[in-house]
Design a protein around this nucleic acid. Structure first.
Lengths: 198, 198
DNA sequence: ACCTGAACACCGTTCAAGT
DNA sequence: ACCTGAACACCGTTCAAGT
């Protein structure tokens, strides 16, 4: 849902983009995703442009700078997070805590499978997250509802609050990215879920 | 303890350094600490040199590259972590789990107070941690003993293992560094401690 | 409207010359 | 033995010229 494609320079410039420009934009994002996921830590804008089959200038026409490009990956990921949260709110059969846990796990599985976005999450500062501001806002609304239900069901610790959800996700995400021997994000999540349980 | 000051290029070159070189080295580390802790995300090697009152070449004489300089900050921090773990092993009055919790809290307090080291922890890849290899090894030995005791006391979940200690520290450390509104590393730690409890 | 890529700027790193 | 800083290399970003 909500596959917004606004130019990142201005918040609300919703002119529809020429067909070739649209295609280029898509290719640039795809190229960035592939290259950022690679083993080499620092990917150059020239490489992204080359792999996308465009000139560097075109990359900068679509994304004001490198952080904006990473920001787009983050934005798309939050879109997917929100999808997972909505799913959890819909499937109410299992119980409020289970639904919350499932949403967290689904989000982190998607992060674990996507090294490029993880790179954007980690290496980028606040500038990167600014590009996903509205998606993050919706994320908080959905998270709020999810924990409200779990609290009502008496299954979640009283002092657990909505902002703890992105916080623990950030923590687990960091450990996925560092990934020392013996580290296992699944156990990390399980541990935190134990701590969340009322 | 163990204020090792080996040149970072070779693992075990223990020649004692001329007095002025030693002083310069100290100043460079101090300058890096001050600048990395500043608001601007990317500090230049020239700035570090200037603040330390030396030429850039001198910085590179002491540290093979920028990551080695960050690595030294990480190394010193692990020295301090180890000190905290030893302390926890010595103060056995309170109980094994309490000792473990105190060690974790002490480590994270020191991280929370030191933006420069946090920067080094986060922005650096494995290359940075390689500089603290032996300190990290000792850290694991101490952590092992700490959790062994907590397991014996029956106060720690059976499936909690030694490598989970740096893992959760890494996770909390990441959330300290990002620090969105509503995030609180103290509650993050408390949450995890709840999950650790047998 | 959009694209190109040579040119520029910035910053990590080196090395010839100094003490 | 150690220091200096100008020179070099690399890569993010811009912009004049194209379609």
């Amino acid at each position: 849902m909500s596959t917004k494609t606004s130019t990142d320079t201005e918040l609300e410039s919703e002119r529809p983009l020429r067909a070739d420009a649209r295609r280029n934009r898509e290719r640039i994002i795809e190229a960035a995703r592939e290259l950022f996921a690679g083993e080499r830590p620092n990917v150059q804008m020239d490489e992204v442009a080359h792999r996308a089959g465009v000139g560097v200038g075109t990359v900068y026409r679509h994304f004001s700078d490198k952080e904006a490009l990473m920001g787009e990956l983050v934005r798309q990921r939050f879109d997917l997070f929100n999808e997972n949260l909505r799913q959890a709110l819909a499937d109410e059969h299992p119980g409020a805590f289970t639904a919350l846990a499932a949403a967290l796990r689904a989000n982190l599985v998607s992060v674990a499978e996507d090294a490029a976005t993880r790179f954007a999450f980690m290496s980028g500062g606040e500038r990167v997250f600014a590009h996903a501001a509205s998606e993050m806002e919706e994320f908080m609304l959905l998270a709020n509802e999810l924990i409200r239900r779990a609290h009502l069901a008496g299954e979640l610790r009283d002092d657990f609050q909505a902002s703890d959800i992105p916080m623990v996700m950030c923590g687990i995400c960091a450990t996925i990215d560092v990934s020392k021997p013996g580290w296992d994000w699944q156990r990390h999540l399980t541990l935190i879920l134990h701590g969340m349980r009322a």
